[in-house]
Amino acid sequence: MKKILLPTDFSANALNAICYAMELFAGEECLFFLLNTYTPVLYDNEYLTYSSTQPTLTEIYRNKSQQGLERVRRRILRKYKNENHHFELVSSFNLLSDELKEIVKEKKIDLVVMGTKGATGAEEILFGTHTVHAIKKTRCPLLAIPAHFEYRPPKNILFPTDYETEIPGVLKIMRNIVDTHNSAINVLHVYSELNLTESQAGRKKALVRAFKDNKLNFFSITDKTVTRAIYDFTEENEVDMLVMVNNKHSFFENLLFRPVVNEIGFNVKVPFLVIPSNKKS
């Protein structure tokens, strides 16, 4: 049974991501962990005079969190009647990124699915702050769903790679999605050198072997930044999901964690699956 973690702050954006997960894994048996974290404000002097019969701020926040999770669960069950889907509610007094890290390890989570609003204006980056922290701290694949994105089957997947990561071992969740939805994988290599190194060529062959039963299309682009190449490809071709391996020694972290609006105003408009590499610490 697949274990999927669904963080929610009870916003429409979070609910949209949860609905995407219900659709994406409609045909699979899954245990979904609905997670809400809360951090009550600091107590002020006036509040410290409360009667011992009154609930504490922590209790108030915990009750609101638990009630909100139950409302989300009921809403999902009304909209998606699926006997293969099971739910566990988790309400935690913790920071979201810290709780994600703990639950992923404790529950052996296969995938985190969460909504992201991204950022706007001069400080624009690919994701909002919560999503970036989650990606940096969580040793687990994470699927970020843009706000207002309506579900459609991921028939066309864009997979940019520099062939610097050992491929087959880290792509289990991608293989699952590809096999379930009969997806085509568009492999995008942005390069400055004319030829692949011996190790890069070996990893490309490993990718071909790993997805030998699937449709693979290879694209090589030069004289462009990775960001521009991804942007242009998504503008010129139908893309339903973007998948990247978070190898801190590759182009990924520069792409993910630096402002890019001054370059092309790039923003992720489709679900973005981020897969940690085996070597990432």
Rank of each mutant, 00 (worst) to 15 (best):
1 M>F: 15
2 K>E: 13
5 L>S: 10
5 L>G: 12
6 L>R: 12
12 A>G: 13
12 A>C: 05
13 N>E: 02
16 N>T: 04
18 I>V: 08
22 M>Q: 14
24 L>E: 09
25 F>N: 09
26 A>Y: 13
26 A>E: 13
29 E>F: 01
30 C>G: 08
30 C>A: 09
33 F>L: 06
34 L>I: 00
38 Y>C: 00
40 P>W: 05
42 L>E: 13
44 D>H: 05
45 N>P: 05
46 E>N: 11
47 Y>I: 03
47 Y>A: 11
49 T>L: 10
49 T>N: 11
52 S>R: 10
54 Q>D: 08
61 Y>I: 04
62 R>W: 05
65 S>A: 15
67 Q>V: 14
71 R>L: 14
73 R>L: 15
78 R>T: 11
82 N>G: 08
83 E>D: 12
83 E>G: 14
86 H>K: 14
93 F>G: 07
93 F>K: 15
93 F>L: 15
94 N>F: 08
101 K>Q: 13
101 K>M: 12
102 E>K: 15
114 M>Y: 06
114 M>Q: 05
117 K>D: 00
118 G>I: 01
127 F>W: 02
127 F>T: 00
128 G>H: 01
128 G>R: 00
129 T>A: 07
130 H>W: 02
131 T>S: 01
137 K>P: 01
137 K>D: 04
139 R>W: 03
140 C>D: 02
142 L>F: 04
143 L>T: 00
146 P>M: 07
151 Y>W: 03
151 Y>L: 01
151 Y>A: 01
152 R>T: 12
154 P>F: 07
157 I>W: 07
157 I>L: 06
159 F>R: 02
160 P>V: 03
162 D>A: 02
162 D>C: 01
167 I>W: 08
168 P>K: 01
168 P>R: 00
171 L>V: 11
171 L>K: 00
178 V>H: 04
182 N>V: 06
186 N>L: 01
187 V>R: 05
187 V>K: 03
190 V>D: 05
197 T>P: 02
198 E>P: 08
199 S>N: 13
203 R>N: 14
204 K>C: 05
206 A>I: 06
209 R>G: 05
211 F>L: 06
214 N>W: 07
214 N>Q: 12
219 F>K: 14
220 S>T: 14
220 S>C: 15
222 T>I: 13
222 T>Y: 14
227 T>V: 13
228 R>I: 15
228 R>A: 13
230 I>K: 12
231 Y>L: 14
231 Y>G: 13
232 D>A: 10
235 E>I: 08
240 D>Y: 11
241 M>C: 11
241 M>I: 06
241 M>A: 09
245 V>T: 10
245 V>R: 07
250 S>C: 05
252 F>K: 03
256 L>R: 06
256 L>G: 06
257 F>P: 00
260 V>E: 10
260 V>A: 11
266 F>K: 09
268 V>F: 02
273 L>R: 00
275 I>E: 01
275 I>N: 01
275 I>V: 15
276 P>L: 03
277 S>M: 02
278 N>E: 12
280 K>H: 01
